[in-house]
Design a protein around this nucleic acid. Sequence first.
DNA 1: CTTATTTGGTTTCGTTTTGCAACCATTCTG
DNA 2: CAGAATGGTTGCAAAACGAAACCAAATAAG
Lengths: 158, 158
Amino acid sequence: MTRKRFDEMGCCVASALNEVGDWWSLLIVKQAMLGTRRYVDFQNSLGIAKNILCNRLSRLVENGVMVRVDVGEHGKRYEYRLTDKGRDLFTVVTALRQWSERWNGAQDSMQLVDRQTGEPLAPVTVQNQQGQPLTVRDVRFVDEDGKPFEEAGRPSPL
Amino acid sequence: MTRKRFDEMGCCVASALNEVGDWWSLLIVKQAMLGTRRYVDFQNSLGIAKNILCNRLSRLVENGVMVRVDVGEHGKRYEYRLTDKGRDLFTVVTALRQWSERWNGAQDSMQLVDRQTGEPLAPVTVQNQQGQPLTVRDVRFVDEDGKPFEEAGRPSPL
DNA sequence: CTTATTTGGTTTCGTTTTGCAACCATTCTG
DNA sequence: CAGAATGGTTGCAAAACGAAACCAAATAAG
């Protein structure tokens, strides 16, 4: 009775969640985006148990989201840094942050601004090739053949 | 020894994860975006245990992400539908899907296209007010006062 | 140089969560 | 009416989690 395997569901959302879908991983990534690199700093800023932190950092490294780099003279002093793959989660984290701000109110003492202009960011949206924003009702799920996807004979009205 | 409370961390990413951050919730939302509405259909399409599904649906309803609506003649036949708040997670789910496709390869039999044109979607990006894409290096985290945020005296070089 | 502290872990143990299967009460279907 | 489907709940075993203790190497303090 292991935990359900998400990587074998043939759904890329599921396999993404398999890598960063537990309670802590995305928070660690978010913290890393704030500049945190050291084991102890993650522990203090997140208030996570040490064994869990170890486990999560290992898994993030395994999955290529972070790297562990030696920074001590004779080893035994490390930093955990985001890889390109990890930095690419910026979109996900930002979308999640904005969603929470929109629906739960901004309980956050922190804000994200454009480094150049100092202006707040635009809301993250899904767009078509022309740059027009799309909602979930504006899209269709299709097979690789282009045939519309039918979930259990349901015409997906939402 | 309850699970760590994410809603009291003063971070909106944390409180978002508190609502939809466990292994199953986002997958249920994603499935709902495909058109699934019924308890049994969620169960069959996701292969989730019934008690877990019950628990997750209840929590999603509690948090205003989904609603349970009566569709039977005399009750006892329900549908779970996304609310506006739930549909607004489309950005997050799509960003996650695209991230997984980019870095793990498309192991998915399904594709998202613009309902109007049939074209695939543009990659979800974080943008500034002018619509220019921003990476995590192009932004700054600031206090409500506008002062740059310093994590444990670290100048956030990434 | 010697001691204390920091860092990055691992181990132990009790609690919580998860997954599976069995069970149950309505409600549709044949 | 009989049988299946729907939407649950309960009980149990396995796994994951959280807190604290413990540990070894590296660094900092005196």
